[in-house]
Design a protein around this nucleic acid. Sequence first.
DNA 1: GCGACTACCACGGTTCACAAGGTACCTCGG
DNA 2: CCGAGGTACCTTGTGAACCGTGGTAGTCGC
Lengths: 95, 95
Amino acid sequence: MLALLAEEPRYGFDLVRSLGALDGMVTGEGTLYPLLSRLQKDGRVASSWRDSDTGGPPRKYYSVTAKGRRALGEFTAEWSRFRDTVDHILVKATT
Amino acid sequence: MLALLAEEPRYGFDLVRSLGALDGMVTGEGTLYPLLSRLQKDGRVASSWRDSDTGGPPRKYYSVTAKGRRALGEFTAEWSRFRDTVDHILVKATT
DNA sequence: GCGACTACCACGGTTCACAAGGTACCTCGG
DNA sequence: CCGAGGTACCTTGTGAACCGTGGTAGTCGC
């Protein structure tokens, strides 16, 4: 989530569609909107309303805060270690 | 879990210690024992009691069933795709 | 007998994913 | 003008899972 928003600010409905196109990712508005709310409550993202440029209701754009960027950095390091551990176990299992 | 047991049959307490030594893995008996129970209930692992060779109470050894091996294969494929997706998003985020 | 270690398991709180349902804005065809 | 359909937000309820805590019981050494 933070990584997607770090590329560029996005609004919720757009994220739902983007994630739906990806593999094995969180899907559904019922998962995503609460997640965004939690991130904002914890100060990792900020939001601002912007009118739609294609008609339709206004959009709530989320962007990553400094704290969010820090959290993303920590997660990236943790993910890297976790990924290697899992890979290692799986390789050994199929040997 | 299945990957660890696929290497060789193990008992619960041993798995707790092994996972504790690994990075970012599930820790604690309160997590592991229910997990093993679920796996057995779903037929992915089988268990058998064996007396300890170093003294102490008997041990419940778990081993992977054919169904478990199939599940492990499916997970490995899914994990591979998931891992690549996450890696890709994280790399783009830091660019 | 008793403390320390090994080994199993159950219980309960909290958190979360997800499906389903709800509100509201806009556009377009008839 | 009005209703259908797309866009976009959010809430609620259910079920599942993690994990801390505590409980039971076996063996060994002193």
